[in-house]
């Protein structure tokens, strides 16, 4: 069971390697996937190794690399991959809680605003993956009591710096963009700088804690 996976074509030059089971995110599998991702990075002909949530997408030059060969390497690497990768770094991110959704979000869960803030800021989050937008962290570790379906109609412009939750995940907006997640607060933490060689501030495997700062609700 632990070594099960599915492999599918993502076009001519990419493969999607998926180890999720029943759509439920698993931390141990993710740690093994990140180790597998590290072992593939820098392979000639491989352009991108992209960890998702319990999956890995590998993009390559199909004219120089054989997709079946990459598939074999993924399968073998997965069997061997141990979760003891490099330890991640820790980040403390200051948040001013508030914004347009906080009241309704709390009410929908039958919690007070203070309880929502407490639960959101007491959890220890892990960066599962970076993606969608430049530097956007998919954070696991959200208090299950705060898991809520996404908004039925996404907001058109969720501002840069918005501290958000959607489904069982947490995140922070790196740019102003549409999102269906709920806004719980705001941070000035910089997630992305295109002038750095590694432009994303957070890396998969890092841990994150949100620190509530005084301010308007």
């Amino acid at each position: 069971m632990a070594n099960e996976f599915t492999l599918s074509d993502a076009g001519t030059g990419a493969l999607l390697f998926d180890v999720a089971q029943d759509g439920v995110f698993d931390e141990t599998r993710q740690a093994r996937l990140l180790a597998l991702a590290d072992s593939l990075a820098g392979t000639p002909g491989i352009d991108d190794v992209v960890p998702g949530m319990n999956n890995l997408m590998v993009a390559f030059d199909p004219l120089t690399v054989d997709a079946d060969e990459i598939g074999r390497r993924l399968a073998e690497g997965w069997r061997r991959a141990a979760s003891a990768g490099e330890p991640g770094r820790s980040h403390e991110i200051a948040v001013v809680y508030g914004g347009p959704d906080l009241q309704d979000f709390a009410a929908g869960l039958g919690l007070s605003v203070d309880e929502v803030i407490e639960r959101h800021s007491q959890a220890l989050y892990r960066v599962a993956a970076i993606g969608a937008m430049p530097g956007f962290p998919y954070l696991s570790g959200l208090d299950p009591k705060l898991a809520t379906p996404r908004r039925a109609v996404p907001r058109q412009g969720v501002p840069k710096g918005a501290v958000i939750v959607g489904g069982g995940q947490a995140g922070i907006m790196p740019i102003t963009a549409p999102s269906g997640w709920h806004i719980l607060g705001h941070t000035d933490f910089q997630l992305f700088d295109p002038h750095r060689a590694v432009p994303a501030t957070l890396r998969p495997g890092d841990s994150v804690r949100f620190i509530g700062k005084g301010g308007e609700r």
């Binding site: 030059g13 990419a14 998702g52 999956n55 993009a59 993956a129 998919y138």
Partner: peptide, 27 residues
């Protein structure tokens, strides 16, 4: 669960009408 995508991916959102992701698609 969320996963990496490349340009050319044909997604089918809940509306049932396809979207083809292109050069500036979310990653």
């Amino acid at each position: 669960l969320s996963h990496g995508i490349v340009p050319g991916t044909v997604q089918v959102p809940p509306s049932g009408r396809p979207i083809v992701q292109l050069a500036e698609a979310n990653t």
